[in-house]
Every structure is written in structure tokens, then in C-alpha cells.
Write a protein that binds this DNA or RNA. Structure first.
Lengths: 261, 261
DNA sequence: GAGAAGATTGACGCCGCGTCATAATTGACC
DNA sequence: GGTCAATTATGACGCGGCGTCAATCTTCTC
């Protein structure tokens, strides 16, 4: 792929100027597409509009993404990278297994709050009509991202069992329980921003309710130590502050910056 | 609306022939649109295709639904009517509050299994891009359907408290807990049919996992009687059989059939 | 500096939505 | 049974947007 014995000018990052330019343009396309998706869904993305906005011909855009769905999937991959980053940052600063789990919950909240548009995109991209139109390569990338997130969560579960904090007693598998926390959080958030008049139905703060429900689920499986409102409040506050300070808002895929060496 | 002193031929149902014809056509449109949505989402609906299929001009279709989104919303309303029907049938044949709740869970499963396409539609319709394009009137209808479902669930919760089976101890509101069960079920199902490679991640049977997790959540809140695998198995089996026998597959909105009187 | 490989361009074909002026049908009233 | 207004049906049309591709321009290699 990369011309090994080339005279092409090499930038510090190991890319030819052209390659760097292309990479930058790709980012720019995604940047432009994001708000379009936000109001209008997949149909909101207009290849013509992107091309016009960037002062490139439409064909050039199609060199990067062979269809709208590819753009959406690329954004979803960015989303999941960011989510994983938050998961890791949140979990790794706790010792206790249940605290780790709760922190990941806070990371979900934080993701949803700071990257609301990406959350939506993550939901959209999963519809068969979108999924099937995208390239095998990107689909695999996305699946990988998702599996890494799930693996992080599952590892916390296994740690809890190893340390004796949790005992599912053979009848239930760790993954099934993690699936529960995932459903609860993901589902709650989807309902929160897509259900007409949640408050009419009696829900004041969806996030608070979701958090409380996650704890009830963990209590239901006997995960030690059981829910303690005061402890939770502190955990939430500190985790949130930590994430805001240590995980930044930009979402571009970690391209080598050229700063190193 | 209805011409009171009209010579128009009146059918037994109280509609003029024309009105009946229009109603029937409306059903036919929805019938045709359903599979289109299934493979292709909102974009899968083609007004031209529907018109051609029905041998009507496009304008006629637009007399019924002013845009594709209206069709989708109409289908979503059908979906929620059906869901409510299942909820009621499932809950009303149980005595115990926790059994009622578990039965509603089974109703959700049954709905998802028998009306998979409507489940998807229900998810789609909630996206802002769709929601905002539909008419106020239909949106209100939809919100009503949803509230009736939620009310049914909430009433079970309140009954549990009244009977002493459940005690949330002031810190949590019934609605918040019901929201948890809703999130868990809804979210789990969404993940189930939209996540690439759930089994790669360790989930064998999503429905079983969801059911188990709902019980864990209820246990976590101390809802009596606590989870008993054997009891649950029986409940699931009998509820499922009952629903299959007593709630039918057709989804047309209950139009007066003319049979009565 | 010639030629190959790769990148860029934008006009084009096509599809599908939603409109609207026109035409057909219906029903009320005489 | 005939007339007229209101309701309903029609389909050609304008418009916007997707994805293509032959032609053109740039970059790299030798």
C-alpha cells in the first residue's frame, strides 16, 4: 500500500504529503457530515452539499466514501472509540469491582451528554438498511470497537467473581448479566431521547433513574458491596469530574501527530 | 364530519359506502407499506410503488397520508395498539402482582416475535427526523397509545405496593422502577436485533437473558415473591400459550365490522 | 522529460418525493 | 332525471439528490 522506495516527500509522520492531505480531507468530510446527520438522519447527509461546502467535486468525496452509509459508519466508529476511551479512563481509576462497574455507568452518561449526536449515530448505524450497504471492512472495524467495549465490561465482571464480590451460582453467565446492564443503560437512554413526553409518564431525571436501576440489578445478583446512596453520590461526582478533565472532546481517530521522535 | 341528513347509502356500520371504501384503502396502503419498511427503513417506502401496486394515482395516496412519515407513524400506532392488547391479556389473567409483571414481560417477547417488523417500526418512528415531519394529530394518537401501555404497567406496580409485595422506601418512585423494566426489555431487544455478533460476545439467548435480568431487577428492589426458576418457567410457558391462542395476528385498527346489531 | 499510475472533475442518467391544475365522480336539491 | 357544487382522483411536472464515468489534470518513476 505505502510506496516503500519512493522519492515522494515524506512527512515526519511517515506519510507522503498527499496521504496526509487525503487523511485530513477525510476528517473534514466527517466533520461536515456530523451536524447533517443530527438533523435529518441518514437522509440528512447530502453528498452534494458536502462537496459544495468543501469546494471539491462530488466524485472526490466518493473517492473517500462510496456511499452515505459509509460516512455514517465511519462516524459510528469514531463514536465507539471515544466510548471505549471513556470506559477505560473511568474503570481504571477504581479498585473495587463494583465501583469500577458503576464508574463505567457514569462514563456512559458522560458519553451521552457530551457526544449526544454520536450516540444517535451509533443507534442509527445498526439498522439493517444502513448496515448492509456499508463495506465489509468498515463493518468489521465497527464490530471490533464494540467487542473491545464489551470485553472491558466483561473483564470487570470476571474480576468481581474472582475476588468473591459476585457469585452468580452457575445458573447465570457473566455475559448475560453484563448484557443486562448494557440493555438498561442503552435502552434507558434511547427511551429518554426518543420518547414523546417521558415526564408525562412520571420520569423526572432519566439518568438518575438509570443509575438507580443499574444498582438494583447488581443488588439483585448480590454483587458486593450492596448499593449505598452516599457512596454512589461521591463516586458519580468524582468520576464525572475526572472524565471531563482527562478525556477531551475531539473525536478524530488517533492519527500519528508527528510530534513523537 | 359525517353528513347527518344525507340520502347517501348508509352501510350498517354507519359509514357511507365511500367512507368505507376509503377506510379499506387506507388499510391496504399500510399493508403494502409494511414490508417495504422492513427492508429499507423509511426510505424503503415508495409512494410511487404503492400507487402502482394499488392501481391508483399517486395523488390519491397523498389524500390519505401527506408524507411517508405519516404512514410510518400510522403503522407505529397499530403496533402500540397491538402491544397494549397483549399487555392486558397477559396481565389480567394473573392474580399475584409479580406474576402480572412477569407476564407483561412475556407479552413483550411475544410481541417482538410475532410482530418483529412492527417492533422495528416502533423504534424508527421515534427518531426526531421522522417524528417532526408527521402531523400533530397522529403524534398525539401515538403518545396516547404509549401512555396507555405505561399506565397499564404502572398500575401493576402500584398494586404491588398497595398489597405490600413491594416497598421502595421513599427513595425511589414506582415510575422510575417501571422505567427500568421498560429500558431493560426494550434495550435488550434493540441490541438483540441490531448488534453485529451478539453471540461472539457471549449472549446465547437474548430473551432468556432479558427475562432473567428483569427478575434480578425486581429482586434488587425486593419485590415479593423473589425469583423462582421453576415458577417462572411455568408462568412463561402458560402465558405464551395463552397469548398465542387469544390474541390474533391481524393488526388493523378495530373498525366497526357491521356485524353487531 | 516521457509515460504510467493515480486523483479530480462535473455533466449525466435515474429515481422518487410532493404539488397542483385539470378532470371525473358523487350527492343534494329541484 | 337533470343541474350544480363539492368532493375526490389523476398524472405530468419541478426539484433535489445519489452514484457513475469518460475526460482531464497531477504526481511519481525511471
Amino acid at each position: 500500500m505505502v510506496p516503500r522506495l519512493s522519492n515522494a516527500p515524506e512527512l515526519p509522520s511517515g506519510l507522503t504529503r498527499k496521504q496526509a492531505e487525503i487523511l485530513a480531507r477525510e476528517q473534514r468530510i466527517l466533520q461536515l457530515a456530523r451536524p447533517m446527520v443530527t438533523d435529518g438522519g441518514l437522509a440528512g447527509i447530502s453528498m452534494d452539499a458536502i462537496a459544495k461546502e468543501m469546494d471539491y467535486a462530488k466524485g472526490t468525496i466518493y473517492n473517500h466514501f462510496s456511499c452515505k452509509e459509509e460516512i455514517l459508519l465511519a462516524l459510528a466508529i469514531e463514536a465507539n472509540s471515544k466510548r471505549l476511551e471513556l470506559f477505560q479512563a473511568a474503570a481504571d481509576r477504581q479498585e473495587d469491582s463494583r465501583d469500577k462497574m458503576a464508574s463505567i455507568g457514569v462514563a456512559c452518561e458522560d458519553f451521552r451528554e457530551r457526544f449526544a449526536d454520536l450516540f444517535q449515530i451509533d443507534v442509527m448505524v445498526r439498522h439493517a438498511a444502513v448496515w448492509e450497504k456499508a463495506s465489509e471492512k468498515r463493518r468489521e472495524l465497527m464490530a471490533q470497537c464494540e467487542q473491545r467495549c464489551m470485553a472491558k465490561v466483561a473483564s470487570v465482571g470476571h474480576q468481581a467473581i474472582a475476588s468473591g464480590d459476585l457469585d452468580l451460582g452457575g445458573s447465570t453467565r457473566v455475559e448475560d448479566m453484563m448484557f443486562g446492564l448494557w440493555s438498561l443503560t442503552y435502552g434507558g437512554m434511547i427511551i429518554d431521547d426518543s420518547s414523546p413526553g417521558l415526564d408525562h409518564v412520571g420520569i423526572r431525571s432519566a439518568f438518575t433513574a438509570i443509575r438507580r436501576n443499574c444498582h438494583a440489578l447488581m443488588d439483585g445478583y448480590g454483587w458486593q458491596p450492596l448499593y449505598d446512596p452516599e457512596r454512589d453520590r461521591k463516586l458519580v461526582r468524582s468520576t464525572r469530574a475526572y472524565l471531563r478533565r482527562h478525556v477531551h472532546d475531539d473525536t478524530s481517530i488517533p492519527a500519528t501527530t508527528g510530534k513523537d521522535h
